[in-house]
């Protein structure tokens, strides 16, 4: 059984159909990339999975449970963490408080401290700046904070929305190597990206979204060789 399975998902904004019946699955331990241009429906798909938007039709199964009617705040305790697009950190709170909030649904105080140490080990920069107000961090550091915060809930699967958006090439490489580390530590990753090249490099499988439909799917390295993917997303 797949860890996360989306079946025939339809999502509307008013009368406009943003997602037109897509289906995909994520197996435990995989990195799955969802690539596509602006307006293809990538963020909408993630928001529907995490309950921020209600689907009109279709099923979202996470470990066999249907998530369609689950409110966003209950998703986290089921083992799914969401790193929202655009570095949505808590700008007026300290780095430490941001990370603590990542563990908001956990009550095992001692183990939370252990997770915090683990996150600090993975992001030494966050440890250095733990007392700093999060809004004063640089863009790359804020993205790391958003990822660290998601890890604080000890998720089975982590959904990342455009982690490379607006970052310098150096930070982009760093963010992607962190995603690989996260996968190595046993967490499944569903990655939504416009940076198709980077995403396909680290993903196992990928789905190409075009105006609310899945246009292509398959092994990530095979997709990199696909002519239409090359032309449309890799600029070759």
């Amino acid at each position: 059984m797949a860890m996360l399975e989306v079946k025939d998902l339809h999502v509307f904004y008013g009368v406009i159909e943003a997602i037109k019946g897509i289906s995909f699955s994520v197996e435990a331990g995989e990195v799955i990339a969802l690539i596509g241009a602006n307006g293809a429906g990538k963020t909408t798909t993630l928001h529907t999975i995490t309950g921020l938007i209600q689907a009109k039709q279709g099923e979202i199964l996470f470990e066999g449970q249907n998530l369609c009617k689950t409110p966003p705040h209950k998703i986290v305790s089921m083992g799914m963490a969401h790193v929202p697009e655009g570095r949505r950190i808590f700008a007026e709170l300290s780095v430490f408080a941001n990370l603590k909030l990542g563990a908001y649904t956990r009550h095992d105080k001692h183990e939370i401290d252990q997770t915090l140490e683990m996150v600090y080990d993975r992001f030494p920069r966050l440890k250095e700046r733990r007392g700093q107000i999060a809004g004063t961090l640089s863009g790359g550091e804020q993205q790391m904070l958003a990822m660290g915060r998601a890890l604080m809930s000890r998720p089975k699967i982590i959904l990342m929305d455009e982690p490379s958006m607006g970052l310098s090439p150096l930070y982009v490489s760093q963010i992607f190597s962190i995603i690989e580390e996260i996968r190595r530590s046993g967490t499944t990753v569903l990655l939504v990206e416009q940076n198709a090249k980077k995403a396909l490099e680290i993903a196992d499988r990928a789905y190409v979204l075009e105006t609310g439909n899945i246009a292509l799917e398959g092994d990530a390295h095979m997709l990199m060789e696909n002519d239409s993917v090359k032309r449309a997303y890799l600029g070759e």
Partner: peptide, 17 residues
């Protein structure tokens, strides 16, 4: 902390539970 998280960013607040 949760109250201030809602103030700073309600989507992120929902995303941490």
């Amino acid at each position: 902390r949760a109250i201030m998280a809602v103030r700073d960013n309600s989507i992120a607040a929902a995303s941490v539970g």
